[in-house]
Write a protein that binds this DNA or RNA. Sequence first.
RNA 1: GCCGAGUUGGCGGAAUGGUAGACGCGACGGUCUCAAAAACCGUUGUCCGAAAGGGCGUGCGGGUUCGAGUCCCGCACUCGGCACCA
Length: 948
Amino acid sequence: MTTHDETPASYRYTSELAGDIERRWQDRWDAEGTFEAPNPTGDLAVDGADGQPLGDKYFIMDMFPYPSGAGLHVGHPLGYIATDVVGRYRRMQGDNVLHSLGYDAFGLPAEIHAVQTGEHPRTNTLANIANMRRQLRRLGLAHDPRRSFATIDPDFVRWTQWIFIQIFESWYDDEQQRARPISELRAEYESGARTAPDGAGWADLEPLERRLLIDSRRLAYVDESPVNWCPGLGTVLANEEVTADGRSERGNFPVFTRNLRQWKMRITAYSDRLIDDLERVDWPESVKNMQRNWIGRSHGARVRFQVEAASTSFDVFTTRPDTLFGATYAVLAPEHELVPALVTDAWPAGTPRSWTNGLETPAEAVAAYRAVAAAKTDLERQENKDKTGVFTGSYATNPVNGEQVPVFIADYVLTGYGTGAIMAVPGGDQRDFEFAEAYGLPIVHTVQPPEGHEGAYVGDGPAVNSAQTGEGATLDVNGLNIAEAKEAVVAWLEAHGAGEGTTTYRLRDWLFSRQRYWGEPFPIVYDESDQPIAVPDHLLPVELPEVPDYSPKTYEPDDADSTPEPPLARADDWVHVTLDLGDGPRPYRRETNTMPNWAGSSWYELRYTDPHNPDAVTDPANERYWLGPKTPGGTGGVDLYVGGVEHAVLHLLYARFWHKVLFDLGHVSSEEPFHRLFNQGYIQAYAFVDERGVYVEASQVEERDGGFWYDGRPVTREYGKMGKSLKNVVTPDEMYEAYGADTFRVYEMSMGPLDVSRPWETRAVVGAQRFLQRVWRLLVDEHTGESLIDDAELDVATLHALHTTIDGVRGDMENLRFNTAVAKLIELTNHLTKVGVSSRAAVEPLVLMLAPLAPHLAEELWSRLGHDDSLTHAPFPVADPAHLTSASVTCVVQVLGKVRGKIEVSPDISDDDLTALALAEPNVVKTIDGREVRKVIVKAPKLVSIVV
RNA sequence: GCCGAGUUGGCGGAAUGGUAGACGCGACGGUCUCAAAAACCGUUGUCCGAAAGGGCGUGCGGGUUCGAGUCCCGCACUCGGCACCA
């Protein structure tokens, strides 16, 4: 960097001076507790001010970071700067602003580091947090430091575990559509108001049966079912953590479906509310859509198909009950539990050879097909879209027309969705059509396809071939459109006991256990009957034991038959524990799985509101003040939540679920955790590869002659994430050093709209620095350091420039358009520089408007303007409407829509006067060229449009 | 395939249906300097023109309108999500 010793302007706003100013103000803000936000009650309430109004609240949150050992790059702070600008602006509007930053500190990288080094993950994580705090403090973020925490803090873990127990001790009442305490369910069983699904009364059940009955209803439950097992990571994963091609999102290892006993959360109970309440929050439409998509609600019908020969029946799910007359066969998933019952002893006479796969009996054919299907991974199943299947030998009855339709098994029907069985309508479904073609099955259209249409027709149209015939016919939907026909068929099915309208969801229950060390232990022990019991409150938090080895047992990534083995299982002394849970000291076994990374982030918004409360997650008064609904019927929640879109269906869905459980149980007054969500874009960066395809250090690449060069050799430019592997990292520390934090903040905010990703360009940062230097020069003499401020009155043009800027910047601030706010402030600064105005009446509002964006410089100039206090709570300037109109405006004169002349006019000129002036403008006269003026559109004073 | 977002100078981007390209970077020219850097001033969509002025321009093709980057219809491409979900 340049040295400034010889520069004549020794009071210039250089990076050194900026650094001095910034550090000084950061220390002062800390010392004075400038950004501490008072609570209504508890340890953060203002002494002696209990019950005093605190003013309007504004609660801002960033998606909290994982404290990575690599430190920050310039992309990370983008959202933090934006929320900081909002927070500072709201404080100048008089709001009580809650803004802090915690750390999401459990997680895989720390565990991997621990496995490699033997160092406890806590040690490394705490060091990373300290480093990140240092980097962020230098940015000058207006956070309340008293409210920061990390999810690994024992005090935080205690409440994560407490919430887990609340969920464990609840069940979902479908009638009341809310979670209720498990004690109320037990009471209903005991009183006889409710019986077991098989009709058994409470008194008929053995104690263990009672427990199993209760346990089966809990919102957090242990269940043996197919889960995503990832041998490469040595742990199971939630559906949300598995990519579309069947690999782990983390590490990209293959994932296999295995039946394992694991913890789950009954998030599916909340499917409807999670979808419906999206209408009530202020979120980007794209994220709402992703959540709707993920939950995948579809309305349709369940239809019963009888199999007389086997004296049984199966249900299919369809979204198109209107096409039932076109169902010419049925398909079960290969894994469907009814398959063995449907397999006949021999092929029915006349069975086509293609239906048997060439095998002698249905039993052989089905067994062979099931074996092949089971051996396939999910990925293989997905990749092979050719329709295959085999006939079971059984026929089922189509309930509407009595037709006997063959029943197949085929792997294009999935076991996990709907009922795992379908009615196949080749006339109206492309997949069924392909299967029917391959197996020579009849194709019946039930919606009239357009002329010349081939294959399955999925569009709307009048129903055809859809009427019962003969005596006692009660169903005829011919001529109805799809919606009408659906309704009529469902009504008929319900009236005849053959099915009913129903809704299914794609969402599965949330797999909640992981075989890892570095996560929250479950507050659960098992008794001698191997059933889970919650650890009592006074024994929380359950802390992680010290273990010799932090690693779970990992396997070859494609070793599908391996079995998860959590590291905690090896801590014998910890696992086996004697507790007195009310009936004397007894031996128990601890749960050895840990919670997934998402646990802490599923409720942390609550802890910011009352971070040290020893008695509750948060005091109800504090929760109500910071998160409660602002208007009756509102959802409540954080006023502004900013983060990346990558959490659209993971964190944001989980957090909504937990929040709703806590709402149902009466612990919070808000129905949603985050009322307004904003997705910031990413800062990406150019990277360069040489002729071998190896990345070279991006900062050393030169651009010349229309190409890029590294060490004298040509390189090609690529674009991607900032990171070590692309050798294109730029750090905030480098920016502080070269330009100062304020310049860095202004540059990041001015690069473009907050929600758009954009490339980092270090050489453009200087533009922000030049801007701040111009502001500085308006107030301070660069050579002497003396003040240049005077008390001169402002001229009309400057008044106009100032007030339109105030007006515009306010609007931009409200709408998070910081890039245009910066542009307006630059314009004002350039105007003042040009006309040589350093009057207090102009520069003081400029400094105040700059304060949210470049707070250190603004504070420094504010004090040079003679103010002793921080400008944190100084009022943001208000535009005077009298100065928003200027003395004259440029009127554009168009002829046939093209601009042909401009005239300076008074803003309150009359239409007639303006028309006359426009028609007299020389170039307009020339363009009209004597033609007849047919029409004149006047939008005084800005525009006249002449039609000839 | 379905859903969502997008496509504007050399680059990042700005534009309540009303002067397209604010603001910034870069580039070019200048001031200062022995010189360079920094800083400052000016020019900068493109083509024709000495200038005045004019032609063409917001992914492509249509449409509505006195007037379209903006509204409507169709298409292409890019990015994100979902996907044999019945």
